[in-house]
Design a protein around this nucleic acid. Structure first.
Lengths: 307, 307
DNA sequence: AATTTTGATACTTTTAAGGTATGACATTGA
DNA sequence: TCAATGTCATACCTTAAAAGTATCAAAATT
């Protein structure tokens, strides 16, 4: 069973247009006998007469007319394939799965970058997913994600490439009315927090920030009193707002918490810095990922120029 | 330039599904090396890497994923071609151009047949055209029409095949108030019309009926006084209604003319008969035409059974 | 009736696809 | 670490399919 092939469909279209085997062969750059056999081959395979043989020339049968229409559609599509594939290779087409942690999502840079990407490459369908750092890393390694915005350096992760995008200081988040929440202009010394109850968000969800806080406190000479662990950064702030304790959060969180939380800068530690990172697989990056990466890098450069 | 062919697209799909050259080759019933070359050939032609070569197996690139999607669409369409062409050859698909004269259009059989055809073969797109007999015959010969409902035997017409469908008597159409229009039950003798002014519709538009009337009158021993010629049968009846004269029209016209025209049967001539015919080309009938013809024949048989 | 036009057929040559054997490379297990 | 294994790539040969050449057959036109 040598099913229909495009070579014959192409020839058939020319033949139908010319209505004349010899002339069509000429236009196709072949001789007349092969073209005749080509038509015969099509007819034999389809089991249908495609052209009436007239004394001068040939003429489409109804079946032939239907085949002609269909052949044109198929060939147009087939001819479009090259361009489509090229665009996919350039990353202008295709799909991209991007993940982010809840804390990354709260950094204004992330939605800004995603929006800019969507606008610059509208034909790439972007899938978004929010999850904890561990899940994101796992998804990256198992090809369920192509890239992820995260906040923690996650130690050695073989097979991952991590771009450092931005850094920001961490601030103390205090409930309104807290004794440290009166003078909000000056920096608070980290050691002053030694006896305060801390709200931290689960280490499993985001080990990076958790460890950053613990390391900074240890260097300042104390081990923080962890009053409660929250499943997400937003939950942490809710607990702070409710007065259950204080926390240390990335500066970009300031816009959250409304009037119930007061933020203050911290002095006494050079480690209290929250990075924003873009993680991806090292091998076989999707072309659209290269585009995203380039876009993000350019945005980072212009962001730094402003700050 | 050996553009993309379906054989390779088929192989590519299997290869993509298996993710494994050797296994895919097995499924395709070929050896591994040809399949490898096949993939290489596609990549060379498209100028794009379609699969990453992993230590165990292969894996689609983004470009490969796009090609896979597109290939599936193209092949589905290509595989559908056979069925489509078969249906076209059986006359279940395609197009049919049908003409009719104004007088044929007024016979209830014609719209009934066209509606039945549309219902039985909804995928055949039917084009309708009303014109004079001469134009219809010309259109048939020049392939602008496939069939035409006409009323006149049009003498010898080489290349045409004509099916006689139905016959009906011709009636005298009289304006209300005419002296012959009082007794409508009895037959009027043709000779009684010898001195009446006749309205006939143009010979060029429909030579058949015109000649039928003239022949019948001559046989009855007179030559009719043609008061006026009308371009169409409906115009003829309008003129009769307005009192400009009388006419002889097919019996099925009775439903026209409303209350202004009285119809009476005629005695004294066996020639005053109007046929309904279906004309078509003798050579290369469209398959859908064969379907129409069969349908019409069946309808004629059941019609005659009733009458 | 002869000539021309045009598609069909028989046979040969060329090209492309498929098969066989083997290599290169990387992973895995002892 | 080295051999065994799995897997795609390459080289070379064989087979099959497409194209070319020469010629025929049928029908129409002069």
């Amino acid at each position: 069973m040598t099913l229909i092939d495009l070579r014959r469909l192409r020839a058939f279209i020319v033949l139908a247009e010319e209505g004349h085997v010899t002339r069509a062969a000429e236009r196709l750059g072949i001789q007349q006998p092969p073209l005749t056999r080509l038509l015969q081959g099509l007819e034999a395979e389809l089991g249908v007469l495609l052209m009436h043989r007239l004394p001068r020339g040939v003429q489409l049968t109804e079946a032939g007319k239907v085949l002609l229409e269909e052949a044109r559609i198929i060939l147009a599509r087939a001819d479009g394939v090259t361009d489509l594939v090229h665009r996919a290779a350039r990353g202008e087409l295709g799909s991209l799965a991007v993940g982010f942690t809840s804390s990354a999502a709260l950094h204004p840079f992330v939605p800004k970058a995603l929006r800019a990407f969507r606008e610059s490459l509208p034909h790439v369908s972007v899938t978004l997913e929010e999850a904890g750092t561990a899940e994101l890393v796992d998804a990256l390694m198992h090809e369920r994600l192509d890239a992820a915005f995260i906040r923690s350096p996650v130690g050695r992760t073989p097979g991952l490439r991590i771009d450092a995008l931005l850094e920001e200081p961490m601030l103390v988040a205090l409930p309104v009315g807290h004794r440290f929440a009166i003078d909000t202009r000056s920096r608070l010394l980290l050691t002053e927090l030694a006896t305060e109850p801390f709200i931290l968000y689960r280490r499993t969800a985001g080990p990076g920030l958790y460890d950053t806080i613990l390391t900074a406190c240890r260097e300042a000479g104390f081990s923080p009193v962890v009053a409660q662990e929250a499943p997400r950064l937003t939950a942490t702030l809710s607990l702070v707002a409710a007065g259950y304790g204080i926390s240390l959060v990335p500066a970009s969180m300031q816009r959250l918490g409304g009037e119930d939380i007061v933020y203050r800068a911290v002095a006494g530690s050079s480690k209290l810095i929250a990075p924003l990172l873009l993680a991806m697989r090292q091998s076989h990056p999707a072309p659209a990922l290269a585009q995203l990466r380039g876009l993000v890098q350019r945005m980072v450069v212009s962001q730094r120029a402003i700050t």
